[in-house]
């Protein structure tokens, strides 16, 4: 009956139209939204930062390509996810990091954080954070050698969180050294020591705002994450209860970068809105605990990785309400 057809018609199951959104469009948009923060970093910490970023991205893409070859899969480097992982890894190392270490971090991020699980969509943990935590464990000195703003000669300077921790925990090893006093304005603009991509809150919020307008991310994870850190450190982070400097806590360290760009990673976070709020609160509590009483001054990466591990459980129990089911 189809013999007299002039040209074969495509026959597929409905729907026959698709939205213009694609995976690679999402990945590349997030990448572009992260660029302002990197530019500020180049301005504040010098051109060495650019070398680190390029190295991390190159290493991530090369590793992705190699892993695809080894696993006999079509190379997926154009979907932008490896590029994004490389960029985020670079944003999570100090400005003076040696390039070989950055390369190694990116390699671990993609190979161990992603490829061994089966590639895009299958990984349990945020790959960039796997890379960062690997570097933290392996090269603790290099990973905490901070650079003061506008002092390219690798003058080390403690981060605001390190200064806070020193005072809060009573170790006071930094007491007596020539401490920089950071204002909230410095913190907001990124004029402080820290990892490459985490410093400039303003630049990060600009990109995040755009991602929200495009509906690529929603408020649920960032707000519950940052809000919990704020409340937690306000209650417990001062002398006595309810006296913590929560603004310092929110604007310092990797919280803004982590909450808007890494905790919101689709693959490793919950899918439902309720689940996302729970995820954000969990991240916030763990971050607060690590910052106040843990062995490190910063806990954002650990909190996200730990909550990544809980995500399958959250997804199992925080399900949407079934239509027609009794409330």
């Amino acid at each position: 009956m189809t013999e007299k057809q002039p040209a074969p018609l495509t026959v597929t199951s409905s729907p026959h139209i698709r939205s213009p959104e694609t995976t690679s469009k999402i990945m590349w948009t997030v990448f572009v939204c992260l660029i302002p923060s990197g530019l500020v970093s180049v301005y504040v910490f010098g051109f060495g930062v650019l070398g680190i970023i390029l190295t991390a991205v190159f290493a991530a893409v090369a590793t992705e390509w190699a892993c695809c070859r080894i696993q006999r899969k079509t190379p997926t480097i154009m979907d932008g996810s490896a590029v994004l992982t490389g960029l985020l890894l670079a944003y999570n190392v100090p400005p003076g990091s040696p390039l070989w270490m950055v390369f190694l971090g990116s390699f671990i991020a993609i190979a161990v954080g992603k490829a061994v699980f089966g590639g895009l969509g299958c990984n349990v943990f945020n790959p960039a954070l796997v890379g960062r935590v690997f570097l933290m464990a392996s090269f603790p000195v290099l990973m905490t050698r901070w650079q003061a703003p506008f002092k390219v000669d690798a003058v080390t300077a403690p981060t605001p969180l390190a200064i806070f921790k020193d005072g809060f925990s009573g170790t006071n090893v930094l007491a007596g050294t020539d401490l920089v006093q950071y204002s909230y304005r410095d913190l907001f603009l990124g004029l402080r020591g820290g990892c490459i991509g985490e410093a400039c809150v303003l630049a990060l919020l600009l990109g995040a705002g755009y991602l929200m307008i495009r509906k690529y991310i929603t408020w649920h994870i960032p707000l519950s994450f940052i809000g919990t850190v704020g409340v937690f450190t306000w209650i417990f982070g001062g002398k006595g209860l309810f006296g913590g400097d929560f603004l310092l806590q929110i604007f310092s360290g990797g919280l803004i970068l982590g909450a808007f760009y890494m905790a919101t990673d689709y693959v490793t976070g919950p899918m439902t809105r309720q689940g996302q709020i729970l995820f954000g609160i969990g991240c916030g509590i763990i971050t607060g605990i690590v910052r106040l009483w843990g062995g490190y001054p910063e806990g954002v990466s650990y909190s996200i990785l730990l909550m990544n591990a809980v995500t399958p459980l959250i997804d199992r129990f925080m399900v949407p309400r079934r239509f027609g089911e009794e409330r």
Binding site: T2, Q5, L9, T10, V11, S14, P15, H16
Partner: peptide
């Protein structure tokens, strides 16, 4: 286009 049936002929 959302629920329609594609035809062979």
């Amino acid at each position: 286009p959302m629920m329609g049936l594609a035809q062979f002929s």
